[in-house]
Amino acid sequence: MESKVRSILIAGVGGQGVLKASDILSAVIIEAGMDVKKSEVHGMAQRGGCVTSHVRYGSRVYSPLARKGDVDLILSFEKLETLRYLDYLKEGGRVIINDLEVYPPSVNMGEAEYPPNVIDLVADHVDTVEVIDASEKAARLGDPRMVNTILLGVLSRHMDIDTAVWEKVLRKTFPPKVVGKNIEAFHLGRKD
């Protein structure tokens, strides 16, 4: 019997590094000896709009897309984007939210309201919510782009994969100049 497939949904806004994060995560899963499939969006779907990636892994994965109500963990790079995909989460699933607001155009133009209580809404809806100030942490590390590595560190706490495997993949992913900083960022997320 094939073992249970686990699904992680990463959500964010174009340009935040969602696809990069899902690439790293998938590489880690392969390195750990499992099968993986991931989905992503390109082209017009990407231009500053919502970006999501499903990462699914286990001994044998067929579909790169998760079904609604079947995602084990949502890793959200932006608060509002969490709400958009909450129906993908399974009963008892976990949500990790980066404490960051990026306003959609209608909010920018003053025509719509950015929901003021996103974290409460999510907390009312699911059992386990973690809020991480990853963008602030990344800024303190001196590079806002490292938000995705920090969030992967947070995510890694909920996956049964050795730190050494994560480090090995991070070393392969980043150019020598920024590897050290990224490993530091990963551990900053993992320890918290």
Binding site: M44, Q46, G48, G49, L80, L86, P105, E113, P115
Partner: peptide
């Protein structure tokens, strides 16, 4: 599938 929370989520179209 659980319904989404009762809140208007502003769309984020490509721009």
């Amino acid at each position: 599938v659980k319904a989404l929370p009762q809140v208007t989520i502003p769309p984020r179209p490509p721009n």
